[in-house]
């Protein structure tokens, strides 16, 4: 293909200048990530900034190096389906991430769900005396 007149019009023709520009951007973003970590931001902000920079870097690699930018629409659609199903897997699991040991303690359950036994539960579970 490369030696044919059509090659010049090929949308997937490698663009070396663009690759080098992205390479420079990726190295700068890597240094930025490390520099931001030196600021010792509070953890939520540090995680947000770190993951945002990582997402930008990953997008650059996927769009330019993996040629997703300008790719046939079917491959991005396949990827969208994958991300959807990955999210379906992740969200239910994340539910457990917000459970802390104190939230599932006997006292906490009794306090939040008094109608379901709660503090009275141990007494209810006490076996009946044998006469």
């Amino acid at each position: 293909m490369s030696n044919t007149p059509d090659a010049a019009r090929d949308p997937h023709r490698p663009n070396v200048k663009l690759y080098m520009a992205v390479f420079g951007a990726l190295l700068c973003l890597t240094l930025l990530t490390v520099a931001v970590s030196k600021l010792h931001l509070p953890r939520p902000q540090a995680i947000a900034v770190g993951l945002l920079i990582a997402a930008v870097k990953a997008s650059l690699v996927a769009a330019i190096f993996m040629h997703l930018w300008g790719e046939d629409g079917r491959i991005p659609r396949i990827l969208a389906a994958v991300v959807f199903f990955a999210a379906m897997m992740i969200f239910p699991i994340l539910d457990g991430a917000f459970l802390v040991p104190s939230a599932t303690s006997r006292v906490a359950v009794a306090d939040q769900h008094p109608d379901e036994g709660g503090a009275a539960a141990p007494a209810a579970e006490k076996p009946a005396e044998v006469k």
């Binding site: 540090a46 770190g50 990582a54 870097k57 990953a58 996927a62 993996m66």
Partner: peptide, 17 residues
């Protein structure tokens, strides 16, 4: 490139955050 992308997320997640 996919292996590179995985590392792009692993590096901050494990080393920096």
């Amino acid at each position: 490139h996919f292996v590179d992308i995985v590392w792009i997320f692993l590096f901050p997640a494990l080393y920096l955050l």
